[in-house]
Amino acid sequence: MKLTLKVWRQKNAQTKGRLETYVLDSVSKDSSFLEMLDILNEQLIADGEVPIAFDHDCREGICGACSLTINGIPHGPDRATTACQLHMRRFKDGETITIEPWRAKPFPVIKDLVTDRSAFDDIMQAGGFITARTGSAIDANEIAIPKDDSDYAMDAAACIGCGACVAACKNASAMLFTSAKVAHLNSLPQGKPEKDRRVLAMVGAMDEAGFGSCTNYGECSAVCPKEISLDMIAQMNRDYLTAKVKTFFSQKSA
């Protein structure tokens, strides 16, 4: 199939970027979206031009590296699908496709379509864990966890940290990512002792990183490749309010 691509090119964080137009003549409809970009890059190398930089790794929808906004939608038009799992048969012959990076202040462009998402790591480092030193664990079956609770935690834990939620949100908010981790750990009995300090610290780190705020558009969940639910955000809000009130009246410092 024949395609016209408008791709965001930006040499580095300091320079301004712009959309460049490329034409591809023979792309197999069985190719994945990233394979289509591989073909374009091979063509650019052959023409003596600099190929397009984009993040990708596992190409099976789980590592969360790929981060392309395709025709204005993070990860493209298919629901619950990462860009690497998107296939060209989804597009029409002769179609024009616009490809841009994730756009958010805390995700600065490094080059072309590659952004720096380390703000997510910062949020995790603030509290996205259960303190459990290696070797100190009790037997795994010591605590029974109701299946429903465990399934709910797994729903939240399925997040791949790709950042599409931020990219899609009209406010560039990171609530869905942060809440998925909070909901996963706060809903398990192992995570209860650190529940309050976790949610306060993670929300604090999220705000500090400069993400926008949540106004409940729901775009995040709609583009999420793992379909993380808005319920996670509601839970985080609840946990956050509770923690705020508790620490306000508590003798102990959180």
Partner: peptide, 14 residues
């Protein structure tokens, strides 16, 4: 939080 906006905008479900 988004100093540079998308050139092509789209809405999925908002």
């Amino acid at each position: 939080a988004r100093p540079e906006d998308y050139r092509q905008k789209a809405t999925v479900q908002a």
